[in-house]
Simulated assay, not measured.
Amino acid sequence: MFARVSTASVEFPGLLGVNGPENGSPARVNSNEFSYKKGCEIFGEKEPADYVYQVMTGAVRSYKLLSDGRRQIGAFHLTGDIFGLEIGTDHRFTAEAIVDTTVRLMKRLSLERVAEIDVAVARNLLSMTTSNLRHAEDHMLLLGRKTSLERVAAFLMEMDKRSTAAGILALPMCRRDIADYLGLTLETVSRALSRLHGFGILGFIGNNQRQIVLLDRKKLASLDLQH
């Protein structure tokens, strides 16, 4: 289930961290906010990529279903992240709410029109696309060349960089999600986390162990060979 929360005209370039066009006024793009329940699909693979999305609250996973039914998660999108910006005309992944989530939708065509008159916006859109490509390359390396322990360490380092709470990772995703992101089994992820706990690198808060306390970042980074 999803529901419209609001409709507004927003200074979207401001969300990209740039100023407006040469007249000093931020370019504005109409947007809508929708709320999605946990597990609800936001868009599907091969659907037209007519909108660009920003996570306002909650978290989103982008994934593909393989021919044998397995799921490969390509990315996690957290609060403030912009996703759905495709190089082609269709979405390459399915996007789904991990928890109850609110996202802002902006028409891709409108954003492209703003970029045509604002060099800074165009530059930031290119930077976002390049960043997405870099993430895809890093993820490919992680899946192809790292051991299971190195993969879990790399994932925790990535989440730590994106976390707003110093030293504590409040993960919205479950271990199954982590496993499907890292190309591992659920049991392997659990064993790796237990080993890191045994090494004194991390601790757990709560029964579901989704809140992780990083006790030794230096040792954790030493396990991520590509850090």
Results as ranks from 00 to 15, higher is better:
Thr188Ala: 12
Gly44Gln: 13
Met128Lys: 12
Phe155Asp: 05
Leu15Ala: 01
Gly84His: 08
Ser148Gln: 12
Leu225Thr: 11
Ala136Gly: 03
Tyr181Trp: 04
Gly88Glu: 07
Glu158Val: 05
Gly24Thr: 04
Leu126Ile: 03
Leu214Pro: 02
Val5Tyr: 07
Phe199Gly: 00
Pro21Ile: 02
Leu193Ala: 00
Glu112Ala: 10
Ser62Glu: 15
Glu137Asp: 14
Ala3Asp: 12
His91Cys: 05
Ser110Trp: 07
Met128Glu: 05
Ile82Ser: 06
Asn208His: 13
Ser222Tyr: 09
Gly88Leu: 03
Thr164Phe: 12
Gly20Pro: 00
Ser110Ala: 14
Thr7His: 09
Ser163Cys: 08
His139Trp: 06
Leu215Thr: 08
Leu225Gly: 03
Leu16Asp: 05
Val189Trp: 13
Leu184Asn: 07
Ile205Asp: 07
Val10Ser: 12
Asp68Phe: 07
Thr185Leu: 04
Ala3Asn: 14
Leu182Met: 03
Arg145Gln: 10
Val119Lys: 14
Arg134Tyr: 08
Val5Pro: 03
Leu111Asp: 08
Ser62Trp: 01
Arg113Lys: 12
Arg195Lys: 15
Leu169Pro: 07
Lys161Val: 00
Tyr63His: 15
Gln72Met: 11
Val5Lys: 10
Glu11His: 10
Leu156Ile: 12
Arg162Val: 00
Gln72Leu: 11
Glu11Val: 00
Gly198Gln: 13
Leu223Lys: 13
Lys37Thr: 10
Ser148Gly: 10
Asn32Tyr: 04
Asp138Gln: 14
Val55Ile: 12
Leu184Met: 15
Gly69Phe: 11
Asp216Arg: 07
Arg134Ser: 10
Leu202Ile: 14
Arg71Leu: 02
Leu220Tyr: 08
Arg175Met: 10
Leu111Phe: 08
Ile201Leu: 09
Asp177Gly: 07
Lys218Pro: 00
Leu214Gln: 06
Leu105Val: 13
Ala136Cys: 02
Leu16His: 02
Leu142Val: 03
Gln72Ile: 09
Lys64Asn: 15
Gln211Cys: 04
Phe204Tyr: 14
Glu150Ile: 00
Arg92Val: 05
Phe76Arg: 02
Gly200Lys: 06
Arg4Leu: 06
Asp68Met: 08
Phe2Val: 03
